[in-house]
């Protein structure tokens, strides 16, 4: 008698835990006619819970040393490397060929390594010491913007997810990401990778569901500081931009069609989600003209 296979229950990922959606709803994306599974249809409440988790994780993650964040990102890549086969399986379930699946997994791992290396370097790239004309020491450094809503690309569901999440968290932001609607399997399995990679709970929160239902909440939530949208739905982009005005979220819109190209290995994606802070302090120049204060 052949063994009965255990089917996986795909759940969402909030605050380092795997709850089901509070709404109790599901949807069933398909590859052709084959159902991929019963996937959580996340609600506005799930999103709000995820924002609370992301905000709660912000101080710890942004306050961690850059070296530490770098190692945590590297650890994600290590964990992913060990589970290549599982991700390839899921990509193939979602319709990829074996070759394409392998390429996507490899590229995803490499991209994480790439950004892991930036964690303790981008600051030097974007900082400045400013030669002001008064007796002050003055410098500018980037700081993470805060909590970021991320709309992961619909296609290339694994590398798309990686390419949007990793540069956002590299600087110390935390995020709530909506996975690919029709290809959500890898996103949830990736949550398992994160969960075993020393990434503090709440730094990355992953929801499954529909953009149609969630996009307006992701754009309007007053405790979200920035928004990373991928895609080219003009109507949705306009709506998101308008909703983001209320608390002046930083909105970044990219059409991730050339996801494998080297342009997606770039510190400028990190720069998109940082704020420049300039600090002044007097220099006491004994005997020199003019007071620094």
């Amino acid at each position: 008698m052949s063994r009965l296979e255990i089917l996986k229950t795909y759940k969402i990922y909030i605050g380092g835990k795997f709850p089901r959606t509070e709404s109790g709803r599901f949807y069933t994306p398909k590859n052709g006619t084959t159902p991929l599974g019963n996937i959580c249809l996340s609600s506005r409440k799930d999103f709000r819970n995820a924002v609370v988790a992301a905000r709660g994780a912000f101080d710890g993650w942004s306050g961690a040393t850059a070296y530490n964040r770098s190692q945590v990102l590297y650890r994600i890549a290590e964990m992913l490397e060990g589970r290549k086969a599982q991700f390839m399986d899921e990509l193939m379930q979602q319709g990829s060929t074996k070759g394409a699946a392998e390429k996507e997994v490899h590229a995803s791992i490499d991209r994480i390594i790439y950004y892991a290396g930036w964690c303790d370097k981008y600051t030097q790239l974007f900082s400045a010491v400013n030669p002001v004309a008064t007796s002050h020491f003055n410098f500018t450094v980037p700081e993470p913007t805060g909590v970021v809503s991320v709309f992961a690309p619909e296609e290339n569901s694994l590398i798309g997810l990686i390419s949007t999440i990793i540069p956002v968290i590299a600087s110390g932001n935390t995020c709530v990401v909506l996975a690919s609607e029709n290809k959500p399997l890898c996103a949830i399995t990736f949550a398992e990778v994160i969960n075993s990679s020393d990434v503090p709970g709440g730094v990355i929160n992953i929801l499954t569901g529909t953009r149609k239902e969630l996009h307006s909440h992701m754009a309007s939530h007053m405790d979200v500081n920035a928004l990373f949208y991928t895609g080219n739905d003009k109507k949705e982009i306009l709506e998101i931009k308008k909703l983001a005005v209320d608390n002046l979220k930083r909105v970044v819109v990219k059409d991730f069609v050339t996801i494998y190209s080297a342009e997606h290995d770039s510190p400028y994606y990190i720069e998109d989600f940082v704020e420049m802070k300039t600090t002044w302090h007097p220099i006491e120049k004994i005997g020199a003209a003019g007071s620094g204060y």
Partner: peptide
């Protein structure tokens, strides 16, 4: 965006 330590309201063209 701007922190003044032991000073305030200082501006300079080189300072973002």
């Amino acid at each position: 965006g701007i922190i003044w330590g032991n000073t305030f309201n200082k501006f300079d063209p080189t300072s973002p």
